[in-house]
């Protein structure tokens, strides 16, 4: 990046650091912080959508829909996250490739599973083998996002389901007495009041989501943990910037980053809780 970095063996002290911290690998490290933010921003709407769908399904008047909602929440909540994170991307990937295979290569006679191998025709590969690397990475990232959304959506569904049930019945009965339709009662009375009860649970979920982002690393996405481990590892003389095992330092940076992120989030949720509970008949609403 800087001109004086052309020959790393000649620099030392501060200029060594200025060169070291701007290597291509470090730039990748800095960019991977964006991956974490992208994951958070992308998953939250999907989590809320899944959460609402799950909560409403559990309150549905149709028994099969209710079963579906209950099945979704209890299945995801009852299975360890890590197993789900490992299962969903592989299953999704092979499922998508299998469907594309059926669609694009229907004349293919060989079985898809040959011994240990999962083989689909070249045109059914997802993404295609010739796609540039960033397409592969984005695809992997999106599968990971979906896994996060499914898991956290189930928790959100449970929280929202509980919050919907916590709104005092008298409120809804009064609304009905005013002649509101079911839809109006839900939109104008039930939903706005629900937030006061849902927020503590949802903010908790957000914190857990932040802390779960390093699971991306487990799914092969090159996130901050991946680069911290990679950069921190011992660098022998084969590298331009040799150094001993510095993983402790790099992980310390991550520690501070996560602590900062959760601290800011907590402030934000405290404010939000105060706002939505104004005028509520809860303890939070009376202060």
């Amino acid at each position: 990046m800087f001109n004086h970095c052309a020959d790393p063996s000649l620099v030392d002290g501060l200029s060594w650091w200025s060169c070291y911290l701007t290597t291509g690998k470090h730039i990748n490290f800095y960019q991977s912080f964006l991956v974490v933010f992208a994951l958070l921003l992308l998953t939250v709407p999907i989590i809320l959508a899944f959460g609402f769908a799950g909560a409403l399904a559990r309150r549905s008047r149709m028994l099969p829909v209710r079963w579906f909602g209950l099945g979704y929440t209890s299945m995801v909540r009852g299975i360890p996250d890590i197993i789900f994170f490992l299962f969903v991307p592989i299953a999704m990937d092979q499922g998508i490739e299998y469907l594309r295979h059926q669609w694009k290569c229907s004349d293919w006679l060989e079985p898809v599973r040959q011994g240990n191998d999962f083989v689909v025709c070249t045109a059914a590969k997802m993404p295609l083998g010739i796609s540039p690397q960033w397409v592969h990475e984005t695809y992997g990232f999106l599968l990971a996002t979906l896994a996060f959304a499914i898991v956290f959506g189930a928790f959100a569904a449970n929280t929202l389901h509980g919050a919907l049930g916590a709104v005092p019945k008298a409120q809804l009965e009064t609304a009905a007495a005013f002649g509101m339709s079911r839809g109006q009662i839900f939109r104008r009375i039930h939903l706005p009041q629900m937030w006061a009860y849902a927020l503590p649970g949802l903010s908790n979920l957000w914190m857990i989501l932040i802390k779960a982002t390093p699971l991306l690393f487990l799914l092969g996405v090159e996130d901050i943990v991946y680069w911290a481990r990679e950069l921190g590892g011992t660098k022998t003389a084969r590298f331009a910037y040799p150094h001993p095992d510095w993983r402790l330092g790099y992980f310390l940076v991550l520690l501070v980053f996560y602590l900062g992120l959760t601290w800011v989030s907590e402030k934000f949720f405290n404010n939000l809780t105060r706002r939505v509970s104004k005028g509520q008949t809860t303890i939070g609403g009376t202060v």
Binding site: T23, G24, H136, G233
Partner: peptide
């Protein structure tokens, strides 16, 4: 021609066999 592109998988953590250099490659 589509089959002519392949992906090479490596660990990238075992110098001198394979590693990720300072440029991230």
């Amino acid at each position: 021609s589509m089959a002519d592109a392949i992906r090479m998988g490596t660990e990238g953590a075992y110098p001198p066999y394979n590693f990720v250099n300072d440029a991230g490659e």
